[in-house]
Write a protein that binds this DNA or RNA. Structure first.
Length: 112
DNA sequence: ATAATGACATACA
DNA sequence: ATGTATGCCATTA
């Protein structure tokens, strides 16, 4: 597969995101250890479209809770639609109550 | 191996 | 607060 260890890591974390929650590229990158590679996470997301199984990329947004990647979806409204289906409210391409919906793998997966 | 790109993040004006 | 500039690190050409 074209997905190397790094991409696989990203996919794994994104797939671990519970429904109704969202996370940021930086948070994932930080969890992976490459804190500064927030862009790489987004880059991996680009490959996520070719990843198997598909990852819920719609649950991954930037630090502002902005749906920056919606334009990369098959249909840009799909992302909002899915998030809305998850119970996440989106306004002006931004997630409302983002702070409440925020899911940090470095914390949630480190409960123990 | 070097240069350019990228679904970001942070700093500075 | 908004806009521009630079840094980060992996992938691709």
């Amino acid at each position: 597969m074209a997905e190397d260890n790094f991409f696989e890591r990203v996919y794994e974390v994104v797939r671990l995101i519970p429904p109704g929650r969202v996370t940021s590229y930086g948070a994932i990158a930080s969890y992976l250890g490459t804190k500064g590679s927030s862009r790489i996470v987004g880059y991996a997301m680009g490959a996520a479209g070719s990843a198997t199984p598909p990852v819920p990329a719609h649950r991954v947004v930037n630090r502002q809770g902005l749906l920056t990647g919606k334009f990369h979806f098959p249909t840009f409204q799909l992302m909002e639609e899915m998030l809305a289906s998850e119970g996440i409210e989106v306004e002006d391409n931004k997630i409302k109550n983002f702070k409440e919906k925020f899911w940090d793998p470095a914390v949630e997966l480190s409960i123990d």
